[in-house]
Design a protein around this nucleic acid. Structure first.
Length: 587
RNA sequence: CGGGGCGUAGCUCAGCUUGGUAGAGCGCUCGGUUUGGGACCGAGAGGUCGCAGGUUCGAAUCCUGUCGCCCCGACCA
């Protein structure tokens, strides 16, 4: 096949579009691959479609190799299924909802767990039909609070979503592993570096979950990795719990005056000045900070919860949200404090001279959750629940206890990995794939059961596996462009060869035409820049912008039957006799 | 949701302070010259100045409102 640039539906832009910030977005628009239609929604031009389809083809091949069969669902779905799974409300504002002429509720699907589950329920009722893996490549809709980065996070995007159905846990493990292996092959074929990190299952429910993150500065996820090979999303990072300490010999806690201590640092300074420690200085890590949060539950109830954590740590909102999902989390406001006079702002602590203040069994009745580092026997400086007073030497397990532990503190470089593989470092990454075991959440909600070998009804266990096709395209563009333009890996490039005719002599055009025909005959997909009145400079610039990695220049040398092979990646130009070049490029 | 910025030709922008017939470059059309790194000359086409209201003889420009878009942030005793 070949395409003449003079006929191709494309217009390259000389200047950067003003609304595009990240390189992939800028270049895809400038090179005429996509056009913005609405915020986070793009139209696809021929070049963009070609690349997208090549990525899809690779994903399809690996899905089929993994034993998954392709199906296709509508993007427009009725409310009922999502009502049954609870996601009509759980998805919140991110769901595009609409109504038909009769006022019936519909949605534009953000993912398809429900309808896949229902279809399998419709058709299958025996363990003999399982395992089953089916997938689709389809456009998804999510009304993102803030779409960004062009294709990196859109409101309409193409996703490959696969679902596995098993009737045993072992079967699910196997199906999960097959998809996970397929993902490794997909990203390897696409030349994308990736880290597999433990992830939180979030609103999707379920248990085991891993994300494939491509390390990149513009990434949206922060993840941790240790030299010893541990990787995890910060949301899923598990704090290493210290040993508990004996506390029988410890002195009683003492209350001390602490006016003007609006921050942890001022508190630490005051303690060092007036309550000095013999062996070392007090630090922020000796203080117990109590953060008041408000949870908004699905049923609308507002619950205050206090989180106790070492004073040198901050609450990580994302981790907190995961910990309390599906409830939404926000900072407690003035009104919350007004309703709970037990909480003395600035001096909140689990204990006061009058007795326990925090905890479900305490005076306030407010749930009190602790950072896992606050183990029995640890001693703390914390608020005494009296204005301008703190307490020193308050001992966990003796003077106060929490209602449980919560992973709420921020994760820092240098924190120990939970598997003992050493300290972790933090990195930014973009999620390009996600595999997780849904378990029986959807099957339970929607009643998907089969008869097992013993004639007993068992609930099916499911997995769900997503790859963002359009996001991958942006990530590839992001990681391979070189400032002059796009630079595609050969297996997703819109064309195999980009032939540039530079010059106006008839021999140039005759040579170029013949070359294109030969390459085409040799099975190559060729883009031929046949624009007669366009100067060579413009053609070279466009060739660089479009990003086909193999460029052939037919110009001055054509008279002697010579052309140049231009390697876009290395920028090297190598002269060839036409016949030799055809041999090289069609080998 | 909070903060900042911006809406004028297909694209990138000027004009607005100080109201007076809508501008430039690129792109596009026609003619001609040019052709190995974004050529040149000449002639053209193309805009409800985001929208609504107001002030005024007169509004892209001043006032009010509104809508939209882009970027950053979203938690803290």
């Amino acid at each position: 096949m070949s395409t003449r640039l003079s006929q191709l539906f494309v217009r390259t832009l000389r200047e950067d579009p003003v609304d595009a910030e990240v390189a992939s977005h800028r270049l895809l628009v400038r090179a005429g691959y996509i056009r913005r239609q609405a915020p986070g929604i793009f139209a696809w031009l021929p070049l963009g479609l070609k690349v997208k389809r090549k990525i899809e083809a690779i994903v399809r091949e690996e899905m089929e190799a993994a034993g998954a069969q392709e199906v296709h669902f509508p993007g427009l779905l009725p409310r009922e299924a999502y009502e049954a799974s609870g996601r009509w409300s759980e998805y919140g504002d991110s769901l595009f909802r609409l109504q038909d002429r009769n006022g019936a509720d519909y949605l534009l699907a953000p993912t398809h767990e429900e309808v896949f589950t229902l279809l399998v329920k419709d058709l299958y009722s025996s363990y003999k039909d399982l395992p089953l893996s089916i997938y689709q490549i389809q456009d998804k809709y999510r009304d993102e609070a803030r779409s960004r980065g062009g294709l990196l996070r859109g409101r309409e995007f193409t996703m490959k979503d696969a679902y596995s159905f098993d009737y045993t846990d072992a079967g699910l493990d196997l199906s999960y592993q097959k998809q996970r292996d397929a993902y490794e092959r997909i990203f390897t074929r696409l030349g994308l570096e990736y880290a597999i990190v433990k992830a939180d299952a979030g609103a999707m429910g379920g248990s085991r979950s891993e994300e494939f993150l491509h390390p990149m500065a513009a990434g949206e996820d922060t993840f941790v990795r240790s030299a010893g090979g541990y990787t995890a999303n910060v949301e899923a990072f598990e704090t290493v719990v210290p040993e508990t300490l004996p506390f029988d010999e410890l002195p009683q806690a003492t209350v001390f005056d602490s006016p003007d201590t609006p921050t942890i640092q001022t508190l630490v300074d005051l303690a060092n000045a007036e309550q000095p420690r013999p062996d070392r200085e007090w630090t922020a890590a000796d203080t117990l900070k109590n953060v008041v949060l408000a949870l908004r539950h699905l049923d609308g109830e507002r619950e205050l919860v206090v989180i106790g954590l070492p004073g040198d740590r901050d609450v990580d909102l994302k981790r907190v949200e995961v910990a309390f999902a599906p409830a939404e989390v926000e900072a407690a406001g003035e009104a919350d404090f007004a309703r709970n006079p037990d909480l003395v702002k600035g001096y909140i602590g689990p204990w006061s001279p009058l007795g326990p203040i925090l905890g479900e069994e305490s005076a306030s009745g407010i749930r009190y959750l602790l950072d896992p580092r606050i183990v029995d026997g640890t001693q703390w400086i914390t608020g005494a629940n009296i204005d301008e007073k703190h307490v020193l030497g308050l001992v966990a397990g003796r003077d106060f206890t929490g209602d449980g532990f919560v992973e709420a503190s921020d994760v820092r470089a240098g924190d120990p990995a939970p598997d003992g593989s050493g300290p972790v470092e933090l990195a930014r990454g973009m999620e390009i794939g996600h595999v997780f075991q849904l378990g029986r959440k959807y099957a339970d909600a929607l009643g998907l059961k089969v008869l097992d070998e013993n004639g007993k009804l068992v609930t099916v266990t499911m997995g769900s596996y997503g790859v963002g096709i359009t996001r991958i395209m942006a990530v590839i563009a992001e990681s391979t462009n070189d400032g002059k333009g796009l630079l595609w890996p050969a297996n997703v490039s819109p064309f195999d060869v980009h032939v540039v005719a530079a010059g106006k002599e008839p021999v140039v055009w005759e040579t170029a035409e013949a070359l294109v025909a030969s390459l085409e005959a040799g099975g190559r997909d060729v883009l031929f820049d046949d624009r007669l009145k366009v100067s060579p400079g413009v053609k070279f610039g466009d060739a660089e912008l479009l990003g086909v990695p193999v460029i052939v220049i037919v110009g001055r040398g054509a008279v002697d039957g010579n052309v140049e092979l231009w390697d876009r990646r290395t920028n090297e130009r190598t002269p060839y006799a036409v016949a030799d070049l055809i041999g090289v490029l069609t080998a």
